[in-house]
């Protein structure tokens, strides 16, 4: 201990050992824990998408010295920290009566660490009427090694450009004046953009300048909201049922859409009940009209309509001289 202490501290050694570890509930191979190097190699775990690791920690403290020493209320704490993420997590360890070893579980949250976290142990006690004084620490910390960024989501909608008026798909001809359509009959729901609608696809794919970009953003949000709402209705018409008539979430995109929107449609209900409620209202028409507003809200939100509308309004207002209301 290099710090200067104005009170008595432990002379004997405080030693910490990581006895085992779990990643998202699954045990970590012992080969990934090196006691001689004091390293837990979480980065060698084959899966990249884990969220929480748990380290089983055992700490030996010079028991006789603690018992006979001048400190009161002695406790033992694990300190997991990483400077890069400004993260410091302190975990209280426990000791059985008559046991000389302190034990505890240290949780490592992937989202709070970047590359290398250090694990120290502090023995803390009360001395001279002051609580929380550090009276001993491990000489060298353990290192928890990890790296990599969290992976992110994939796209949920396909977008295809089609000429509705003169294109090969005859069924689209009667929609020649529609700027877009949502096709939920395909394996993956698809937005069909009508290339015979002048200016639409250049606007969406190559907007220049703040006003065009804001308009394109607003349009994209409108289309997305439309798509979400159409997919929701389509998925709700495609449910599977138990013998007693309880609806189940379907697989595929239908399940994903329902899972995504139902919490916004019926925020007060858990998912299974929300699904049953949506189905029964649709089936017997009770309050189905009122549900439309909820679906509209959920779909607009999922399509980022409020966000893009605000952006568009502000862009227009700025373009017109930035007059602030």
């Amino acid at each position: 201990m290099s710090t200067v202490y104005a009170y008595p501290t432990l002379v004997g050694k405080v030693e910490a050992t990581v006895k085992g570890a779990h990643i998202d509930g699954k045990p970590l191979q012992l080969s990934l824990i090196s006691r001689s190097e004091r390293v837990v190699a979480l980065h060698q775990v084959e899966r990249e998408d884990w969220t929480e690791g748990v380290l089983d920690l055992e700490v030996s403290v010079p028991a006789g010295e603690v018992d006979d020493g001048p400190w009161a209320r002695v406790g033992c704490f694990a300190v997991l920290s990483e400077g890069a993420t400004n993260t410091r997590v302190v975990t209280r360890l426990d000791k059985q009566r008559d046991d000389s070893v302190w034990r505890g579980e240290v949780r490592v949250h992937r989202s709070c660490h970047l590359a290398r976290a250090t694990l120290d142990v502090c023995v803390v006690g009360t001395y001279g009427g002051i609580d929380g004084r550090v009276i001993g620490t491990t000489d060298a910390p353990w290192v928890v090694d990890l790296h990599g960024r969290t992976p992110t989501r994939q796209r949920e909608l396909d977008i295809v450009e089609v000429d509705f008026r003169d294109g090969p798909e005859e069924w689209l001809r009667r929609f020649a004046d529609a700027p877009w359509l949502i096709d939920t009959e395909r394996e993956q729901p698809t937005i069909l953009l009508n290339t015979s609608f002048e200016g639409l696809s250049p606007l969406l794919s190559g907007a220049h300048g703040p006003l065009e970009k804001a308009t394109a953003g607003l349009l994209a949000a409108q289309i997305a909201a439309d798509a979400w709402s159409t997919m929701f209705h389509s998925a709700l018409a495609d449910l599977e049922f138990d013998e007693d008539g309880t609806p189940h979430l379907p697989g595929g995109w239908q399940g994903a859409v329902l899972r995504s929107l139902l919490p916004d449609v019926f925020p007060e209900l858990p998912l299974a009940e929300a699904l049953a409620e949506a189905h029964s209202r649709r089936a017997d028409g009770r309050g189905w009209g009122e549900v439309q507003s909820r679906i509209q809200f959920a779909a607009a939100r999922r399509g980022t309509l409020p966000k893009n509308l605000t952006a568009a309004i502000r862009a227009v207002s700025r373009a017109q001289g930035g007059a602030r209301r």
Partner: peptide, 9 residues
């Protein structure tokens, strides 16, 4: 903070 643990207090 170098000798006191605020997390304990």
């Amino acid at each position: 903070g170098s000798t006191l643990m605020y997390e304990v207090i």
